[in-house]
Design a protein around this nucleic acid. Structure first.
Length: 106
DNA sequence: GTCGTGACTAGCC
DNA sequence: CGGCTAGCCACGA
């Protein structure tokens, strides 16, 4: 319980399987702070563990990939490498890959 | 203690 | 469709 919110965010990132994605909103729900999606994005934007945390698997609820420290292009590249289809900065069939809050709990 | 910030979202026009 | 607005919250200065 000594974990800060940001540490939990990183921990949640680690639970996203390769080839899947989740949204900022789902992450917030998973962390029991339904309305803290803004904070989630804020924290990932300041991600200091870039190499260790697969935060590229977190996208917007609209399907757009959103931002990335190394640029959206790299984010897209990484997603594609995991078999996720991206077109025009948007994930095709998001629901197909989406991991929901409940699924992160297991 | 307060304030600005942002890798967001939902709602309205 | 699209653009704009308001709401939201952890974190650092």
């Amino acid at each position: 319980m000594g974990k800060s919110f940001s540490e939990k965010v990183y921990g949640a990132c680690l639970k996203i399987p390769s080839g899947k994605v989740t949204t900022y909103k789902e992450m917030a729900i998973f962390l029991k702070k339904r309305k803290a999606w803004r904070a989630v994005g804020n924290i990932l934007g300041k991600n200091r563990f870039l190499v260790k945390i697969p935060c590229h698997r977190v996208v917007k609820i609209s399907g757009e990939v959103g931002g990335y420290v190394l640029g959206a292009k790299n984010k897209i590249k990484l997603l594609r490498a995991e078999g996720i289809r991206v077109k025009n900065k948007k994930v095709i069939n998001l629901s197909e890959y989406l991991v929901k809050a409940k699924e992160l709990m297991q």
